[in-house]
């Protein structure tokens, strides 16, 4: 790593660590927790959709598996959250293995793959809202018991640093992908699957590896979500809104780049807050502005924020 980058990363890390203390405000803190949480989800999506070019439209299925996994293990089986969390992440990875296994085995790509993930997310949403074991229509309420073994903390700052850690893990995974042979294969598959196959790359296994990693990361975000709100229901865990949230950040920020999903999430959530402040409490106006801004961003920054920054630096 060149020294300039080391300095940049160190500064970035220090800023991130100090950020919640910059303003003594819980709204500020919550904003960053939400933003980082969805940034981590975007980073998870980016592993498969960005580097691998397999755009998923149903990342809620992994997120929801993580959220429901930890909740069900705690409430129905009495497993402490500290153990339920890794189990739920493992469960998410397994769901990834299954969905990836069947869809890649049958060669689904492009919009077909997107639609099949969307359908799986819906199937999971319907299943968890149909059985008493998963709380049926009510959802799952994790009892309030603020001890570290329950992954519940009296201070919001703990959640901020947990979300930051999730982003950090995701970025580290992305960095490893960018530097590894696995990552090189993955990008080769994105660029031209036939050529990659001809070069002797085991396309199926590489894609499977990417979806399992992506699913595990997304499930970790789901676990965080459940521990943060202590309440999950089918619509908010497996609903299309989460799937959209997962891909919106990376695409706005720059898919297939390490920092794109993070920047995208910050930009989108920042714009969301700005739109709220600008439009007042009249229902819907802020979302109209947000939708317009999204379209304008796509119109004028087609390569995402990262692409725009690179182009700007190229010109400078």
């Amino acid at each position: 790593m060149n020294p300039r980058l080391v300095v940049l990363w160190t500064v970035g890390l220090l800023v991130a660590l100090a950020l919640p203390h910059a303003v003594a405000s819980n709204a500020w803190l919550n904003f960053w927790i939400n933003t980082l949480m969805f940034a981590a989800l975007g980073i998870a999506w980016n592993v498969l959709g960005g580097y691998g070019g397999q755009s998923s439209f149903g990342h809620a299925v992994f997120f929801g598996t993580g959220a429901y996994g930890t909740a069900v293990l705690q409430i129905k089986l009495g497993v402490p959250a500290l153990l339920a969390a890794p189990a739920a992440i493992g469960l998410g990875a397994l769901v990834g293995l299954f969905i990836g296994g069947v869809s890649f085995r049958y060669g689904l790509r492009g919009s077909y793959f997107a639609l099949v993930t969307l359908a799986f997310a819906e199937v999971f949403r319907i299943l968890v809202s149909s059985f008493a074991f998963t709380g049926a229509g009510f959802g799952m309420l994790i009892p309030l018991d603020q001890r570290p073994i329950n992954l519940q903390f009296p201070s919001r700052f703990a959640f901020y640093y947990a979300a930051l850690a999730l982003v950090g893990i995701g970025l580290a995974a992305s960095a490893m992908i960018e530097r590894s042979r696995f990552g090189a294969y993955l990008v080769a598959i994105r660029e031209n699957e036939e050529a990659a196959k001809a070069l002797g790359i085991d396309v199926f296994r590489i894609k499977l590896g990417a979806i399992v990693l992506s699913a595990a990361l997304a499930a970790a975000v789901g676990v965080f979500y459940a521990q943060y709100l202590l309440f999950v229901d089918a619509g908010s865990a497996f609903g299309p809104a989460i799937s959209v949230e997962a891909l919106l950040g990376p695409i706005v920020g720059g898919a297939g780049t390490m920092l794109g999903p993070l920047l995208g999430a910050i930009a989108l959530h920042g714009l969301g807050e700005a739109a709220k402040a600008a439009m007042g409490p009249q229902p819907g106006l802020n979302l109209i502005l947000q939708g317009l801004l999204l379209i304008l961003m796509l119109r004028f920054l087609p390569e995402g924020l990262i692409g725009a920054i690179r182009r700007w630096r190229g010109h400078a």
Binding site: A27, N30, F31, L229, A241, P283
Partner: peptide, 17 residues
């Protein structure tokens, strides 16, 4: 505006402030 749980939680902190 609290269209969902997480959005509502964020709004409560703002109301607090």
């Amino acid at each position: 505006d609290a269209p969902s749980g997480p959005a509502g939680v964020a709004e409560v902190a703002k109301l607090n402030e």
